[in-house]
Design a binder for these strands. Structure first.
Lengths: 81, 81, 81, 81
DNA sequence: TCAGATAAAATCGCGC
DNA sequence: GCGCGATTTTATCTGA
């Protein structure tokens, strides 16, 4: 039972670390929303902006994927080290 | 055309701010994942932990909503002033 | 081409079933709106009512989650069998 | 205070009617999900199907809009009765 | 690696 | 028309 108490304290610590991080994450999400709002206030269409961000994210992901494939080829050729 | 360039620069600035924020957000998400991994390494079940975090988040949200609805009732009853 | 026609017919049947169900769903949504309107007509504030409905929905979901998490705890402790 | 009790009962009746309707709505939503699952089981791609349903819904909305415009013209011409 | 579950983002629709 | 809430769609993550 003592060990249960110990585990409980340990678990609580983990939970609270996670909750703090999630709070930070949420704060940033709010910041992002604010930026969209600010942009809207200066005449930009948030919907269009979201699409741009999404497209650029995809491009970036694709570029990363291509880089990984390149690494794969290089290591297959014994040229990665 | 000059105005287009200006708008473009403005838009670009917004987009880049958003992308930086999204990067931070993703970094925090990774941190959270790490914490779950670390907890798992010490014997805790991540699934149970996620459920706990979720439940606590709901509790918090619900308490806030209840406070809001009380205000609503009071104002509906003309007792808010 | 015969197989295309067959697949097309099959697909069409699925699509139409879905569309019929969506129509029913929309009809119910309209009914709900009507009830809010009727309640408003007898002096109740729809905004407050919506909040109540939302809160009760959350309560229900939370109770279900709590039951699930109890199961999780029990199984995590090897007490579920 | 007696009137409050009466109002409470009335309010409760409205709330419960709404909740029953929302339950029906949710049941239908589940049915729809089931149909997509069934279609997937016979080899159709749910994502494509959703797009089809969405397109057809748009078409329908557009056709309705056109019909309304036609009615408008007809009544403007005194030909609607 | 894929399916299933979970969470996030985007879209839609309502009421104000 | 705008914000807000609900719904739907998309992306992420975990476990098999």
């Amino acid at each position: 039972m003592a060990s249960n108490t110990l585990d409980g304290g340990h678990l609580r610590a983990f939970i609270e670390r996670i909750e703090r991080l999630e709070e930070e994450k949420r704060a940033i999400a709010d910041d992002i929303k604010d930026v969209y709002g600010e942009a809207k206030g200066t005449g930009f269409d948030p919907k269009v902006m979201r699409r741009i961000v999404s497209l650029r994210r995809q491009d970036k992901g694709k570029r990363q994927e291509e880089a990984e494939i390149l690494d794969l080829y290089l290591s297959a050729l014994g040229m990665s080290e």
